[in-house]
Design a protein around this nucleic acid. Structure first.
Lengths: 339, 339
DNA sequence: GCGTTTTGTTGACTCGAGTAGATCGTAGTG
DNA sequence: CACTACGATCTACTCGAGTCAACAAAACGC
């Protein structure tokens, strides 16, 4: 004869079961579980706590969410979570959300617009409390969808959409930092391996590269476009190396691209930074452990995630939409030619 | 004068609003939205569809979840989503779940037991339909928690817990594959950079390394333990290099560790594979783009994720718990000494 | 034309929890 | 001792959607 058999109902234990077992009403159970909004006598509270423990009651978060109109969840849409930069961002968002008691619904848009749109629709239906949209693309459709009552933050997006929160870094300033550093090493021909932004908006990194060169009175070096990922960088790197006047330095718009470029350079029998210097953008861990370690423009991912989540469900939830731009920092390592 | 203002209620549009607008009962709206369980006359259906479109109605997934007892969500607990291997796994799980209409709640345990336990509790309260538990740790507590009605899959865990689904690879066979390959290159002293498994269960990779050496009549080389990540591998690598009899080859229990080892080797002024050959475990993208490219034992991450999700919410949802072991494949590149 | 199916629609109850408002009992005051 | 004030508790409604039993109307058979 087991101890738990008598009163244990089949199926999941609900508030009602606890109430019956403790000999109180369901309201009291709620008051005990939530510590309010009404007081409960200590003796009653103890009875209820016992019942909860004995029956193994766990409140149904879905029911709570229905009643309260919030399921304590934020959604995140990123292009590809197997890309280390996005993975890190996802991690940071999860932590920032977790600190506030929110869980993270993660979705990958895979750089496809319809996929992204589907995910946003889905997140909206699931009544998430907010969504962080780290999209390379951008469509008015998205505005409408997300605008339908759900708070959202655009991450690192070029266009500053009215009515939307946005969080990002100063891409142009960051790129200038890196290119200027390459220039300071004496390079006169600096190529650019640029990622492809689907909306064809001018990317700040490209502008920064150009400005830095102009400011130094240098002509723009060769430019090759490819995906922001390793294969994209590899392909872009090969094209840069094959250009009529091979650059002596290359700035890549992402760390992953730089790693691809690195491979292209090596396969060409050249070495970094002796033959070609390299700098990139993002500041991911892979940059640190690459060989040579990559000089890169670091994005304050944790702060950005924190700011994004805060705008969604944090203290500044009710403020009007903000556009926060974070500074970047040049993380100097060996790929640029520094010792 | 806007077209939508007249009948649009304030706040989110519910089934009731649609019903009122279309002049039907709420039941009919449900039937239209779900295509059942009862038929609706074409003319009525059209009216309802119009109302839905005009009012911009989207069904509240939370309410649906409450009624149906499922919120079409699976949970994933991994040690650290900024580790590429786990990031890839997360991506694969998300895709597998997405194909079945399920969303992914992602949590990082950060390798901490209490954090892991908290997340599982949270996932349970949120009534997820299943959880994939990729824990390095293991505690009976977890069994109890997850066992409380929620289907779960243990990923790549050494101990085969009864009543639990599990999905993993044959760690020992995989490790043997790699070590045997190093032996075939003529190496007689092969060190092991082993990750730390918190539950101190014997890890198959260690066993495989040992067995391969024994089978070849070789003495076990030096062994160093560290985290499964890059810093862990770096530290382990330094210790292996400093060991009295320096090994001529090293097998690392993860790609990330191998990348750390690579750095240690380079900082010691040695080169791979000339001075020290290297092979590792996981088969992540970083291994491919490392220099030299890492020879590694590839885990079939996509198949594993597919199997895990399928056991949770797929076709074989109602079968008794299974233990699926997938084969690994040796992906030969340059770090082992092959051309 | 009448009884019988078929088809279409509806009202009402349900899921599990939050909480306002009503109710009960008791302690405190005059 | 009557009467208020208050603390503790319960009743009952709500959130939004799924679906069954019940019913009305139309289609059918003979």
């Amino acid at each position: 004869m087991t101890t738990s058999a008598v009163h244990t109902p089949r199926g999941p234990v609900t508030r009602k079961d606890v109430a019956r077992y403790a000999g109180v009403s369901t309201a009291v159970v709620s008051y005990v579980v939530n510590g309010g909004p009404k007081k409960v006598a200590p003796a009653t509270e103890a009875k209820v706590q016992d019942a909860i423990r004995i029956l193994g009651y766990r409140p149904n978060a879905t029911a709570r969410a229905l009643k309260m109109g919030s399921n304590q969840t934020v959604g995140l849409v990123i292009p590809d979570s197997s890309n280390p930069f996005w993975a890190l961002l996802g991690h940071a968002v999860e932590v920032a959300a977790g600190e506030r008691g929110y869980a993270l619904l993660l979705t990958n848009s895979d750089n496809k617009l319809d996929s992204e749109r589907r995910h946003i629709r889905n997140l909206a239906a699931r009544q998430v409390d907010g969504v962080v949209l780290a999209s390379v693309m951008f469509e008015p459709d998205l505005l409408e969808l997300v605008g339908a009552g759900i708070r959202s933050v655009l991450l690192n997006h070029a266009s500053v959409a009215p009515g939307f929160n946005s969080v990002g870094v100063d891409l142009e300033a960051g790129a200038r930092l890196a290119v200027e550093h390459l220039i300071s090493h004496g390079h006169k021909s600096i190529g650019l391996a640029m990622g492809i932004t689907a909306d064809n908006e001018a990317d700040g990194r490209e502008a920064g590269w150009l400005r830095a060169l102009q400011a130094a009175g240098l002509p723009p070096g060769p430019l090759a476009r490819g995906g922001f990922d390793r294969p994209g960088g590899y392909a872009a790197g090969q094209r840069l190396l094959a250009s009529p006047k091979r650059p002596t330095a290359i700035f890549a718009s992402s760390d992953m691209q730089a790693i691809g470029v690195l491979r292209a350079i090596r396969e060409a029998g050249l070495s970094v930074p002796e033959d070609i210097a390299l700098a990139s953008f993002d500041g991911s861990v892979e940059a640190e452990y690459s060989w040579p370690a990559l000089t890169t423009v670091e994005q304050p991912v944790w702060e950005m995630a924190e700011a994004a989540v805060s705008a969604l469900v944090g203290e500044d939830r009710n403020e009007p939409p903000q556009h926060r731009v974070f500074p970047t920092q040049l993380r100097i390592r060996q790929s640029c030619g520094c010792p």
